[in-house]
């Protein structure tokens, strides 16, 4: 019984991580470091909540969350690719923008400080939307794999992330593909934000709670490979999966159990390379390197 609870909680905890990490994968395999996942999630979540409240339609809310994610991804992408901003700094800036921006929006739009009004019923065909989104997240793993390894788009994107000069030499628009990768990552991370709102039933400030960074940790853990990254997400989600059990069954104080996802991620990151004894993670060779035509 406990195991089942843990499993269910883990899968739901893994859903936003999966979406964000797969998004990060598409961005980073194209060569753009995406620290901005956290902020994209937050903006996606806010947009989903606001549009759902405004129209009464959770479906429109989902679309709004995804589009907002794509837009913020495009912003980060433009800064990194066209303005040649340092990818990490731009990502951090987006995250700070999201943190203060959504709080500002809460205040301006709803006159509240902490969270939006409740969204009401979030079901589709009698099933909670979170379940639909969890299925989408799981399905995204093979889809992203296929996109990367079996399509023209994926081949070109990977070429841009490994050796943009080579891609450029055969006439590939490096900047365009990189931007496409970041925008797609915005779509997926935006969807991750949507999921958070659909789970909580409203938007709350800082609700992404570091999931974007944990998704990045999953990228490192899975060495930028879709299936391994997905496994990483499940491992890290376990930290949240056991949280309730720790609190309710074992009586660990909530402040301590809240620490679990982060602590688990950090420990796994620290210990896993020692177990694997392999070489350290291999990011795409041109990750974070701006492409400038000679």
């Amino acid at each position: 019984m406990i195991l089942q609870d843990v499993l269910t909680a883990t899968i739901f905890a893994a859903t936003p991580l999966l979406l964000a990490a797969l998004g990060g994968l598409l961005s980073e395999r194209g060569g753009v470091v995406n620290i901005a996942l956290e902020g994209i999630m937050l903006f996606g979540a806010f947009a989903a909540a606001a549009v759902t409240l405004w129209t009464g339609s959770p479906l429109l809310g989902i679309i709004a969350g995804v589009l907002t994610g794509a837009l913020v991804g495009a912003l980060h992408g433009t800064a990194c690719i066209y303005l040649r901003a340092d990818h990490v700094i731009s990502g951090i800036a987006v995250n700070m923008f999201a943190a203060s921006g959504t709080i500002l929006l809460l205040k301006v739009v709803y006159g509240t400080k902490g969270s939006s009004p409740q969204l009401g019923s979030l079901k589709l065909l009698g099933v909670p939307l979170t379940v639909h989104l969890a299925v989408v997240a799981l399905a995204a793993v093979p889809l992203v794999w296929f996109l990367l390894y079996r399509t023209r788009f994926g081949l070109r994107l990977r070429a841009c992330g490994e050796y943009p000069e080579a891609a450029d030499a055969v006439g590939i628009n490096v900047h365009g593909y990189r931007l496409a990768g970041v925008v797609l990552s915005g779509v997926l991370a935006g969807l991750a934000g949507v999921f958070l709102v659909m789970t909580a039933g409203s938007f709350a400030k800082h609700m992404s709670a570091g999931r974007g960074y944990i998704a990045l940790a999953a990228l490192v853990f899975g060495r930028w490979r879709p299936v391994a990254v997905a496994i990483g997400c499940l491992v890290f989600a376990l930290g949240r999966g056991v949280q309730d059990v720790l609190e309710l069954e074992i009586g660990i104080p909530p402040q301590l159990s809240e620490m679990m996802p982060y602590l688990l991620t950090l420990l796994v990151l620290a210990v896993w390379p020692l177990i694997r004894r392999g070489r350290s993670a291999e990011p795409p060779a041109a990750l974070g390197r701006p492409f400038v035509r000679g």
Binding site: A79, Y82, L83, A85, S90, A281, G288
Partner: peptide
């Protein structure tokens, strides 16, 4: 945030002057 983005953007900054210390490197 606006200031961070402006300072971080090489092209904008470059049009003033290069003034940053080092690169931060990719996630690795």
């Amino acid at each position: 945030v606006l200031i961070i983005l402006l300072v971080a953007s090489e092209l904008i900054r470059g049009s003033f002057r290069k003034a940053r210390a080092g690169t931060a490197g990719g996630v690795a």
